[in-house]
Design a protein around this nucleic acid. Structure first.
Lengths: 256, 256
DNA sequence: TTGCATATTCGACATTGTCGAAAAGCGTTC
DNA sequence: GAACGCTTTTCGACAATGTCGAATATGCAA
């Protein structure tokens, strides 16, 4: 691990949390001398990864990140394949559909279809949810034991009163998830919101993403038709990616 | 400029261009030994800025960029203020509206409202356009002379047959743009598409963004009403940002 | 204007990244 | 099915590079 790059990435992460920070504040967070931090920030700024806030002496994240992330989304094969299927899923179920991928101990939403009723809904692409509190995340963890082991070895944060933070309880769920290729979550991330998720596998059989539908907890549990639509969606996407032997199995991974 | 960070950023830029690259390919592009590149890529990967492509030995941009860029958009004060005004602009004019900011020699679209007719339109947020070929970009250059000087000192790329690549011609336009607080572009970026843009200034009077409406070239030129709506929009956003003495003037900048 | 806090510059030092060489994987060909 | 060639990955000595203290400049507040 190259120190300078590690520090640069930590600068970005700090700005991700705090939005606007001066050199001294950053130096405090990173426990480094201000002059060192200054050199790092200037280097990032030269590439547009960090920008000086207009009319201030503090720094914020830079526009180059937006361009990079746009290309990132374009690069994702799963996303391109999944889009038409999730749209159909949202249409058939009348619910909002999400496609999520693993980002360390969180799930990041890489595509989203609003529920068709047209109610005002925010743009969710790019949002992250702690894996243990979401159906998407539980799917990804269930099929990625080494990540699950690492996560369960740390204390888990509770987001609502209903978030499951007990490692043993989660392990039981993971086993059931793999067995049924289906994960649930009731009010565990957001009160009043529940979801169901299924795995998406690529040609090698590795689970690389998950699809979910989100519904008001008042409509819980989902009808059997919804579960079938969801399963079909994941199956269709996986098939497009070259995976045919549904359901997927837990596969050992390199993790490198 | 810290060398390691510069190299890391160049890795990201290379992946932005090529989507998928192996260590050897990257080493070729950056003109560095593969072992050096490997160290850099691994460091970026540890922070999710780069990821190994599923089932391959090449690398691509990573999901952490999406999270960072989402926070970037959230931190932009202009964007938050502008959204309701551009929506109104799109509604009144029946055209698609854009909000753009400077990213080196390009404009990056930080917000977008589709034209209300509901035709299928792609998501433009995050797209970049060479500044000299867009109305948004020409506004930003006209109010940022040092950037304009730097850009005009380099050869300009032609995107369509109508792209203006002559520095002298552009300088003439810049003068007119500042005078009228209005920039035009006819088929200069995309054939069949033309646009008009106006500056957005912050409390200090610095032009930090631009708003535009895009229309089919067949509807060119825009009616006076459109120009008025556009001007009003920019004025309202600027006022929300604390700038009152419309129109903005070219202001000297630190550029640091 | 003065004073304080923060950002920025500079340069000597030694920590840190670099890069050649060697090893390990992977895919492909014969 | 085994051996080749290509690419990725590991390792460690060297010196180039980043680091950080001190000094300076800048900006904000009183």
């Amino acid at each position: 691990m190259i120190q300078a790059i590690d520090r640069a990435a930590r600068v970005l992460t700090s700005l991700q949390g705090a939005r606007h920070l001066g050199i001294t504040e950053l130096a405090g967070i990173l426990e480094l001398p201000p002059s060192t931090v200054h050199g790092i920030v200037k280097s990032l700024q030269a590439h547009g990864l960090v920008a000086k806030e207009p009319g201030g002496q503090r720094y914020m994240l830079g526009p180059a990140l937006l361009k990079l992330s746009n290309v990132y989304l374009d690069t994702l094969d799963v996303r391109a394949r999944a889009m038409r299927w999730t749209q159909e899923l949202a249409r058939r179920t009348g619910l909002s559909a999400r496609l999520g991928a693993e980002l360390f101990d969180e799930v990041i939403i890489i595509h989203h279809n609003r529920r068709p009723d047209g109610s005002q809904q925010m743009l969710e692409t790019g949002l992250t949810i702690p894996s243990h509190a979401s159906a998407l995340g539980k799917v990804l963890l269930a099929y990625h034991p080494s990540a699950a082991d690492a996560l369960l070895a740390t204390p888990l944060r509770s987001l609502t009163g209903d978030t499951i933070t007990d490692p043993a309880a989660l392990r039981v769920q993971f086993a059931q998830i793999v067995e049924r290729a289906l994960a649930f979550e009731e009010d565990e991330a957001v009160l009043g919101e529940s979801s169901v998720a299924v795995p998406v596998a690529d040609r090698s059989g590795t689970v690389i993403a998950a699809v979910s539908v989100v519904m008001p907890s008042s409509e819980w549990p989902p009808e059997a038709g919804v579960l079938n639509d969801l399963r079909e969606t994941a199956r269709n996407i996986s098939r497009e990616l070259g995976f045919t032997s549904w359901p997927p199995a837990v596969s050992p991974r390199d993790d490198d």
